[in-house]
Design a protein around this nucleic acid. Structure first.
Lengths: 341, 341
DNA sequence: TTGTAGGCGTTATCAG
DNA sequence: CTGATAACGCCTACAA
């Protein structure tokens, strides 16, 4: 017995035929005698032959592997997107190779460079928050590796994009607050350089503008990160300011929960004294008291569509007939942390 | 200009030397003239040469890819484990190919079979809850693909294992409740067939036994799944029973939160009337009111150690000197949903 | 209907 | 020091 796995040659020798005949028999080549074909197939099964995908990949220069790059994977949002990606790519016969950039531009560049060398078939990426240059992405494209960017936009980069309309989500939330009678609405924004932060901030601003309400700089604070802890300080400074607030729209649920905490601690009743709305609809958000009103994002769909777009590129070969930009509209989910309209 | 990527041959031709010389020059072979080496390296850089890893993999029969199989990825626990795995495998030069079994035995088998054919170097797996047979895992081992099982045990399977001592975590929690003066402690257990459920249930039972407290069947209920919703019914039936409870130990945080909700709704004060302790220490658990006492699991470490064990197998070749079984001890985290001792 | 030869990109062995 | 050659496992013209 030989060491490694059974190869096409082993079958060929055992049957006293050539390797090419075996190869053909195994893939229903028209010009093959039934008997030989059957014999080959039978023996292949018996020996548990499996084609060496590596050899095939080398030959056809396709690995059937898709690289997925995300900033992190522990948030419900990204893990759900990945689940969506997998639900499309797996049945299509693709492997998924996941890398985490840890929100670092440098790590992202390193990952992309590695992927560019790894004869990967395509890449799905949600850029790190610190990513401002897209040279590494362009290099991928030049190398003929299709790319789809999701969730976080790369302004100016020509590429397929699947985004969520953060602006619209924020706008919906703030307009709801206005309609429910809130007069002095603050916003806890994310890190200023992040496109997500900007879009949500702009939605907040425009909703106020549209309703002829003043934009007060003191009503806008930024957090350094997206965790609960990051939200506490900004919440306090907001709630302790002289102008009495009656609503806070937070850049995400964790920050919103931090704001709820802080508000309660300072004696505010929610939503009677102050309404609070978050963003993301984390699975636990509905179980806080009061249940957090928030903006739901179709994460699973984002993942599925991104994967589908990439597949299309992979199949329709190199037709670069412009790039698609798909934008999902998020949904406002009103629970009990905000007043009724 | 040729189509594909630059190969070693291109460089060879351009320099009028042989491919093997180029190959040697590129990898610091001792027997190579400095000048040729420099020339090769220089041209390689200029042409942006990258070795085709596929070809190398084919040659050395190693893909430097590790398959990771988890039931799901959206929970904080598994996504943290994966982050831990990545933190070890990535610097070691391995790619990570993640597959989700969706808690389905059949899907898991399909994934494993695919991996067995994919000349993957090794597999890390946390079995689906419905997995009772280990034939597919054994087949992997027979194929010479090292395997490490993590978090969920496979009783009877000879393989490296990295587990968390669920029994001990439960024991700690229940013993704490007893020491804090609780006399009638109920347990909301997980799906009965799951090993995790059993271990935590046994920890609960033994803690009671050790402290000479009765095991009351009516104080043990099972949930069908691990989500908040799954916990509401069982919580109600427990809290509405005639024997007044003064503590609930829940199989995980989501269920514990559901129990808190239900208890509050029924007029219980937490922790004065009833203490509640969960399991997992989800990141949001400390932000509920009262903050949930729970059992923390070293998920990141589980991921890292699993990866390290696998690496050892990969490097030390085939020394099958018995299998290791590493068990982490979880930590009880007391917050305000349980009385002080 | 089947076999031969060449190649995918790289490396190791053996000459020179 | 460097160059053929074979090999990894498979596929596809081209012959036969």
């Amino acid at each position: 017995m030989k060491k490694g796995r059974v190869t096409i040659k082993d079958i060929a020798k055992a049957l006293n035929i050539s390797a090419s005949t075996v190869s053909r028999a195994l893939k229903d080549h028209p010009a093959i005698k039934k008997e030989t074909k059957q014999a080959v197939v039978k023996l292949a099964k018996k020996l548990k032959y499996h084609p060496n995908l590596l050899a095939i990949s080398l030959l056809q220069k396709k690995t059937h592997t898709i690289g997925v790059i995300v900033p992190e994977i522990t948030s419900h949002f990204f893990s759900t997107i990945i689940t969506g990606i997998q639900s499309v790519l797996s049945p299509a016969g693709y492997n998924i190779s996941i890398s985490l950039s840890n929100e670092s531009y440098d790590e992202e560049v390193a990952i992309v460079e590695k992927m560019a060398k790894s004869q990967i078939d395509g890449v799905l990426v949600s850029p790190a928050s610190s990513t401002k240059k897209y040279k590494h992405f362009k290099a991928l494209q030049k190398n003929g590796i299709p790319l789809v960017v999701f969730d976080r936009d790369c302004p100016g980069l020509n590429v397929d994009k699947v985004l969520v309309d953060d602006y619209d989500g924020a706008f919906q939330a703030v307009e709801y607050l206005i309609k429910s009678g809130c007069k002095n609405i603050a916003h806890i924004s994310g890190p200023p350089e992040l496109s997500i932060s900007k879009h949500r901030l702009n939605g907040y601003i425009d909703a106020l503008k549209k309703n002829n309400m003043p934009i007060l700089p003191e009503n806008i604070v930024h957090v350094a990160g997206f965790s609960h802890e990051d939200g506490i300080g900004p919440s306090e400074s907001l709630l302790k300011s002289q102008t009495p607030l009656d609503a806070i729209f937070a850049v995400n649920d964790s920050i919103a929960i931090a704001a709820m905490h802080t508000a309660k601690k300072l004696g505010f009743k929610i939503p009677d004294d102050i309404s609070i709305i978050g963003f993301d609809d984390e699975p636990h958000s509905s179980y806080f008291v009061p249940a957090l009103s928030t903006v739901w994002q179709p994460a699973y769909s984002v993942g599925m569509l991104s994967a589908r777009l990439l597949l299309k590129h992979l199949q329709d070969s190199e037709e670069i007939s412009g790039y698609r930009e798909e934008i999902f509209r998020p949904e406002l989910v009103i629970r009990t942390s905000s007043k009724e309209i």
